[in-house]
Design a protein around this nucleic acid. Structure first.
Lengths: 166, 166
DNA sequence: TCAAGATTGATGCAGGTGCATTTAGTGGTC
DNA sequence: GACCACTAAATGCACCTGCATCAATCTTGA
């Protein structure tokens, strides 16, 4: 935006940035690969199925889905195409708005979401859980929240609490 | 690998995972977008140019580049194609191994790398540096290192030190 | 010395992504 | 009720990526 805005990051911030960038290949891709090796589709599919499974009647408007998942509109549209092809969801027309539609989870979709969670949670434990204590994980949550990664759906658990999330 | 290995992550680890996953869209993509809006090529180009600029004679074998950048071989090959098209690097044949080649940085390449750093560093400051104190950035480095994101090139600076990295 | 195997780098193909645009439907205003 | 601006979703196109494979060259070892 403003070409004069050229404040330099500190050495500490730069070091943190480098590690954030590496996170991609070292952790995020690793989890995705584990899922793939187990014969499952990409994580984005899981995210979509999970959102649908949480929705009131297992159905959402594409526009809602896209807000939840933070992906662009055309990307949602094509993701739904693929899920429909695999019979994991169905497109239902929306009675009150003929432009729109509802995306409804099928039994097969719900089932896949549950089966994926078994592999997915194991991968999280392997690549994150087993490498940090719970206190460290909380500290990491706080720092990432500062960077704008806060999350309404699953807030940082209270330090001495043991509420079950799933 | 082993289908019986199904340890579940703690609530804390799951909360951390969610934030790590969001990091992608919230921070990494944001920096990339800033660069793009400033009219610069993707970050991968910067990484390649930086590696070359650090190499002994501003030249590296593709196979070296690929190890540094942690990207697959075919990806390196095509990245080099694009850099050559833009005259940012040149392919030089390797005298001692006729299969191989050296990729040499041109003046234009070195210049672009330096110009990109101005925008890049500003983006890091904007999306990371300005949101964390130096102590918090260090703490974040330590936690990410635990997750396997450690980095030989720029280790965590000593807590009360002010060594200049660039 | 020569065949087997490893290594370097390129490439054809299928599929995914971003961008811009299109098509269709809604709602408000005069 | 005709017009205009807006929203929902799909799509054509160019480009990028992953996978598998290839050709060329180097290395090893009998």
């Amino acid at each position: 935006m403003d070409p004069a805005m050229k404040r330099k990051p500190s050495t500490e911030a730069t070091a943190a940035w480098i590690r954030l960038a590496r996170l991609q290949s070292r952790v995020l891709d690793a989890v995705e690969q584990d899922l793939k090796k187990a014969g499952f589709p990409p994580l984005a599919w899981y995210d979509a199925l999970l959102e649908l499974s949480r929705a009131p009647h297992g159905a959402l408007r594409p526009v809602e889905l896209e807000k939840q998942m933070l992906i662009p509109q055309y990307s949602t549209s094509r993701l739904i195409d693929r899920l429909v092809d695999e019979k994991l969801v169905v497109r239902q027309e929306c009675p009150i708005d003929k432009r729109g539609q509802f995306i409804g989870l099928t039994e097969a979709g719900r089932d896949l979401q549950k089966r994926m969670w078994l592999s997915y949670s194991a991968a999280i434990e392997k690549h994150v859980g087993s490498k940090l204590s719970d206190d460290e994980a909380l500290k990491l949550c706080e720092l990432l929240d500062r960077l704008g990664c806060a999350c309404d759906a699953l807030p940082v658990p209270a330090p001495r609490d043991a509420a079950a999330a799933r």
